[in-house]
Amino acid sequence: MKIGGTYAVPFVPERAFELLQDPAVLCRCMPGCESLTKTGDGEYAMQMKMALAAISGKFDGKVRITESQAPTQFRLAVEGAGKIGFMKGSGLLTISPSGAGSNVQYDGDVQVGGTIASVGQRLVETTAKMLIKRFFDKLGAET
């Protein structure tokens, strides 16, 4: 599933880029992220607990940052698997100045599998968009 959008954040590109590469910030902003541990260059192990309405599930996964070109773009890949299914997403984030802040444009692919894919079809896209929105909302609140 293709997914994309643009969010405004109140930081200059350099600062936005820096925040987006900071595992502590990523973990604070990713909905449900419980821990993010560096495992290599641009690679992190992640534990997530997703809760949406009555649905809940724990995911173990990885976050990988590649194709970094400070301060304008990088690729963020996130994958996780748990009992209720697995997800894999990879997106190119492009940061451009906009007024006093920046616009972060993302363009990516999300693949979902397991129970959530087979029974959650009508909600997968809505949910993915919502989680990304929450991520940027939280990012915007960083200082």
Binding site: Q111, S118, Q121
Partner: peptide
């Protein structure tokens, strides 16, 4: 779907 997931997987 393209990755072979049966996305019409329930009666919903």
């Amino acid at each position: 779907d393209e990755s072979g997931q049966l996305v019409s997987g329930e009666l919903t």
